Simulated assay, not measured.
Amino acid sequence: MDAELVRSWVEGWVVSRGAAPPVVEPWGFTFEVGLTGQVTRHVLTDADEPLIRKLTETVTAPNTWIKFFLPPQTVAPWVAPGWRFDSDGFVMSAPLRPTAAEAPAGYRVRTWGRGGVTRVVVLTDDGAFAARGQVAVPGPGRTAVVDQVETSPAHRRKGLGSLVMRTLANAAVDAGSSTAVLGATTEGRALYESLGWRTHGPLTGLIRDAAPEAAYA
């Protein structure tokens, strides 16, 4: 995986999620996320068998995440007990340009920005949630990171995902970005590819399970 692409994704992701600034490691990045289900995240730029074995054997804090750019079937034999795989993902990128983003009949769009992050919510005319997403721009001219795109099951196949993505792209262009990157789920990948996004490779995650409670005091 291209190191610059990974760095851009990490820098934008921490802005999007309000995580701690990333610490550069010999093998990638570490940063504190600070959530119950995700305390710390390690992103491995150049993952290989010795590194995966070492980290999964020595990192024991529950709800630590490790992200890397190899398919899960390659890595599975290297993983120590106590870890489980996150859902499959992909790293994708796209050039950005202004584009029309008009809500279909029955929906309205609200956007707002704070701290380098623009959020988009699509609501029905009566105020029910339909779709959302956000984009982080770490600084002028920097690569934007699209994040947390979601469409309610009741409102899918109505073009709302495309509406969110186009609205986010326009916001990123207004903030000075010409390119964007994201981590896609298998389900989201088809939408992004239909909008011209390119898949660079797999994005795989490991999650450290909580230690089982002691059977006796």
Rank of each mutant, 00 (worst) to 15 (best):
V6A: 03
V6Y: 00
E11P: 05
G12M: 09
G18F: 02
A19M: 09
A20E: 02
P21G: 10
L35C: 12
L35I: 10
G37L: 09
Q38H: 14
V39T: 13
R41F: 12
R41L: 11
H42M: 00
V43G: 10
V43H: 03
L44R: 10
E49W: 10
P50T: 01
I52M: 05
I52T: 03
P62F: 02
W65K: 09
W65D: 01
I66N: 08
L70R: 07
L70M: 11
P72N: 11
W78N: 03
V79N: 07
W83I: 02
R84Y: 14
D86S: 12
D88L: 14
S93T: 13
A94D: 07
P98A: 10
P98S: 11
T99A: 15
A100S: 15
P104A: 08
P104S: 09
A105M: 13
G106T: 08
G106P: 05
R108D: 04
T111S: 06
R114L: 14
G115F: 03
V120H: 02
V122P: 04
D125F: 05
D125L: 11
A128V: 08
F129Y: 12
A130I: 04
R132T: 11
G133M: 03
Q134S: 09
Q134D: 09
V137G: 05
P138M: 05
P140E: 06
P140G: 03
T143C: 05
D147T: 06
S152V: 00
A154I: 07
M165A: 11
M165H: 04
A169S: 13
S178Q: 15
V181F: 08
T185F: 01
T186Y: 12
Y192R: 11
L195S: 07
T199K: 13
T204W: 04
A211Q: 14
Y216S: 15
A217R: 15
